[in-house]
Amino acid sequence: MTDAAKPALRKAPDWGRRLVILVPALWLAVFFVVPCLIVLKISLSQTVIAQPPYVPVLDLAAGWPGLRDFAGGLSLDSYKMLGSDWIYLTSYLRSLAIAAMSTVILLAVGYPIAYGIARSPRRLQPVLIMAVFLPFLTAFLIRIYAWINILQREGLLNDTLLALGIVREPVVWLATDTAIIIGIVYSYLPFMVLPLYASLEKLDESLLEAAADLGAPRWKAFWLVTVPLSASGIVAGALLCFIPIAGEFVIPDLLGGSSALMIGQTLWTEFFQNKDWPVASAVAIALLLVLLAPILIYQHVQMRALEDR
């Protein structure tokens, strides 16, 4: 009797725990795994002029033979296409290069901001964090259009530079990579600052005092203590920016030129202009695989940070 009662008692909290995990698991399954599988499926199809614009179409009503026909119709043609045309490879590399460049600049701009906030009086910190997020109160598109205004030939930036005598001729900003990077750094800054702030805010000031006491001048203490102890924030911020930037579409489309594309723009072209769903899906799947690497690195660092606690 008691033996039978025991596992029943133990099961009750176990179920509660499973239920709690179930909600996010379901969410991920419905809104991430299933769409991913659909995209994967389309990427393995061929394009046709029809509705939907690809074959084979999975018809579960046809039963087993239908499934077999469907499986037989799948091919890797779209992926071969990615390898055959330079446009894809160059857009991938361009995206990664721009994402890397922006992330480095974001880190350089975001770290001092986060450090400054973390070192400011405690009462002030929530206000300053709010200030970092303040631009989000206006619509994203409006802010990017504002940048077009600032960066154009007769824009605010050129006016200022000319007035200060720094340049003699208006500089071409718009439709350059510089414009893309300015737009990206501006838009993603809060995503860099927040994780950095979170890790810097926890930093015990006495560690810096100890470093000074042991003979490290300020800059060295910063390099040997502050930076390694904020590594988790650096990695989190960098990935939080790098991954979405690599797939960014709106900013390069509005601020960048039309000659060289980022992968998001290539994907858009395939999907909406060429109506080639399978190749567009293959582009997306390949991007996912490319970005999986930094995500795995992030996981690894997170695990290490947890161990160190």
Binding site: L207, G215, A231
Partner: peptide
């Protein structure tokens, strides 16, 4: 502090966790 021939043991120990 980094130029003084004096070292301190902190109350919180202030060991570098990393």
């Amino acid at each position: 502090p980094h130029r003084r021939p004096v070292n301190m043991m902190f109350q919180s120990y202030a060991l570098f966790p990393h």
